[in-house]
Design a protein around this nucleic acid. Structure first.
Lengths: 253, 253
DNA sequence: CTAATAAATGAATGGCATTCATTTAGTGCT
DNA sequence: AGCACTAAATGAATGCCATTCATTTATTAG
């Protein structure tokens, strides 16, 4: 129907930047916030926002200012838009965190599950998972309660990992519990990475806690090469791998 | 100036309740908030606030309204005081959370470390620790970064646990790492307890994630008697206990 | 006695997420 | 073609929240 509909009438000049991969302010006249020449109210010809753009802008903001700097107002400014405009695309700030979480999950390395032995696959997956979220601990409370339905990339990760466990000979009814146990350890360990160096310094109460103080001292004797958090993570992970590995039946061909 | 200063002019009746163990509003004329007869400005004869009172009021408020309900204004009302009065005793809301954290840590059961075998002691400690903080997950980000100096009860717990590990024949330089690994698992698992029942419901994407969906289904077949979070915790904890236990030298007499 | 300090009130302050009325532009239906 | 509906933007509230500051009153130290 309709003849000349596809003519693309005028389009002032701007090539209608879409998807807005990264980098702020798409060249042209800016709007709410930066200072010059507000955009006038009303729906613009080409949409300024979408979930992908919001996600990358949020990540950019987090990298630059940390999670304290991630505010709806700041995000809006990053996107050169009024804060209320965001609410046409997300229902709440938690929604933004969800978008970020799902994106980050896609960065977790699950590749070894299709090639390497189960132990090696779990090892590389767990290290990768921990390292990604160690930089994003404020997301952990969100993830922990997040129904997987709302996070397609997260669901995809679970699928790959589940299949890896099944192929390795795990009894089906133990797979979810095993993954949950590993994940719990991973999330807890991610926090650990962010702890200050001197977190175990007992200070003035050192005399009243001799055993602990001695243990802390001897733990840090051969340090500085590896972070304490890495030592603890390796220790716990290897314990989990060998403990959980014992559940396997000898399958896999 | 002014003669009759030491006469103790009136003192309406009240015996100057101090410490304020629990239960709100110490009987007499109330103040900021509740509605009737404000207390007049200026330092009162007997202090209305102290850290112990703030801690128990905070816990009361958390139990009643959850962590969202824990606001400085709400806490002040609970204590029948103006919000700004709190800042004479704590420097920030984070300080309040610290007080609560340290109190809760004193509830963790470490008794088995002086009696039972190492495995049993770790088991009961870990379950108790997880159960206490499962109800208080918003504290976990605080704990994880908390220098132990600021938390005497927490330090006391570490001392007991360290001694238990040492007595069980653990090499001193592995003790802290082992405890940290266990704690990481415990904190992560505490979150897990709060997750909704249907967290793993893959919903509309079930067809694209067959292995995971099947694993979830078979995990929940014999359920309802035990919570899934408990199964995962037990599995991981036993794996950690046997994995870490292998580090011990045969000592202990 | 007097200066310093401690502990309260009450009135800001500034930041925050979120909502709502309004404006403008595209879409679908007849 | 026209018209109702919906989508996507602005801009101006709203209400909550932690925190600060000036002020008042009482206790304590010198």
């Amino acid at each position: 129907m309709l003849e000349t509909t596809r003519e693309r009438p005028v389009m002032p000049a701007v090539p209608a930047v879409q998807g807005r991969s990264a980098g702020a302010a798409a060249g042209n006249g800016d709007a709410a916030g930066t200072g010059t020449s507000r955009r006038r109210a009303g729906r613009p010809s080409a949409a300024l926002l979408d979930k992908a753009g919001i996600t990358t802008a949020a990540l950019e903001l987090i990298n630059r200012k940390g999670y304290d700097g991630l505010t709806m107002a700041g995000l809006a400014k990053e996107l050169d838009v009024a804060p209320s405009a965001l609410y046409n695309h997300v229902a709440s700030k938690r929604d933004v965190l969800l978008l970020v979480e799902d994106h980050l999950t896609s960065l977790v390395d699950v590749s070894d599950f299709s090639a390497a032995p189960w132990e090696d696959a779990v090892r590389s997956w767990a290290w990768s998972y921990r390292n990604v979220f160690a930089e994003h601990t404020p997301l952990i409370p969100v993830i922990a309660v997040l129904p997987v339905t709302d996070a397609p990339q997260t669901l995809a990760m679970y699928e790959t990992v589940s299949k890896g466990f099944l192929d390795a000979g795990f009894p089906q009814e133990r797979i979810v519990s095993s993954i949950v146990a590993l994940e719990s350890f991973i999330f807890g360990s991610a926090y650990d990475v962010t702890a200050p160096e001197d977190i175990f310094d007992s200070g003035s109460m050192a005399e009243s806690t001799p055993h602990f103080t001695a243990a802390v001292r001897s733990a840090s004797s051969g340090r500085a090469l590896v972070r304490p958090a890495d030592v603890a993570f390796e220790l716990g992970l290897e314990a989990l791998i060998s403990g959980l590995g014992a559940l396997r039946a000898a399958k896999k061909q």
